[in-house]
Design a protein around this nucleic acid. Sequence first.
DNA 1: GGGTGCAGTGCAACTAGTTGCATAGGTTCC
DNA 2: GGAACCTATGCAACTAGTTGCACTGCACCC
Lengths: 181, 181
Amino acid sequence: MALEHAILVSLDERSGSGYELAQRFEKSIGFFWAATHQQIYRTLKRMVDLGWVSCHEVAQDGRPDKKVYEVTEAGHGELARWLASPGEPETIRHDLSVKVRGASLGDPEALMDEIARHRALHAERLDVYLAIEKKDFPAPSALSGRRLHQYLVLRGGIRGEQALIEWCDEVLAAMREDDRR
Amino acid sequence: MALEHAILVSLDERSGSGYELAQRFEKSIGFFWAATHQQIYRTLKRMVDLGWVSCHEVAQDGRPDKKVYEVTEAGHGELARWLASPGEPETIRHDLSVKVRGASLGDPEALMDEIARHRALHAERLDVYLAIEKKDFPAPSALSGRRLHQYLVLRGGIRGEQALIEWCDEVLAAMREDDRR
DNA sequence: GGGTGCAGTGCAACTAGTTGCATAGGTTCC
DNA sequence: GGAACCTATGCAACTAGTTGCACTGCACCC
């Protein structure tokens, strides 16, 4: 399971509270590993029990207290172990493909709308990624270490969204063509 | 949830037993919706309760009896309803991206091996898909209806694997370059 | 002064998927 | 004759993720 490890990676980049982590999982790290605040709080608790992170409360004025977590020695060990250990590719579960496969059993117009909607969502995500690429990584060939790794992951997001958009376009074109006949 | 709907699509293509379905989920439909035989048996039972499929036992000689399922009127209704209803894109959880993002916290050589291994797995899958494309869909522009939809889903698999392979190559090249410096 | 929204943490109940095991007769290979 | 594998169905226990809700208190807007 990788939520623990995603949290370790994120906390290593910068220590923070569950709330702050939840925000990071809304963007950056969340672009390739989804998690809600519920999961994060629950997992952080488990990670404290495992000794992978330590926790200290921080009083704040004008806002509620918070618990700041940071990666321990044991946490770094676990992270290194996990990084070197082989993993399987994610299992694929792609809703929209099931719908396309079953297209002839429903209303083709409605399905094409649905595909167009997904295309738009992916185009939106792609725009976000491209904006980050342009703003944060204007000179990619000069990158190294951590920054390079962040950039490479972003590249994966860009490639993935592009592939999905192109697929949606192919499906829409073929279905329209088939419709006309 | 789409397992029910994937089963409906598959049973509509051809009625069959839980065992036969499980085999289909090892290939064809399983390429874009993963499911184990456990899940399938459990879900089929629920679907009988919901009235989406009907079930009759078939005695066989030389092998155990089997239960053959087929889609009911209600099942077709549910499928049509689901096909027309909007769904969210799958939530992304990509292990390997987490590992790349955390690359500087572990052994870079081991991680590069891991990426190369994934690249090989995706290349293998791509070969399978391309072989199916060549064998089953030699003249795609002539396709229509059900066969066209099957082809389009396969195209999605091909595009996805290609994108992943290219990404792995980009990551490997960049990390090797970074290593040299 | 009242509503909305943010910062912050968390429980409880649920759904979905995974893993390991059980059973049982038949075939195939050595 | 025994081991391994195929067809066929299923239970039980577990892990992971989702959804809905609860509580506090400050800030900001109208």
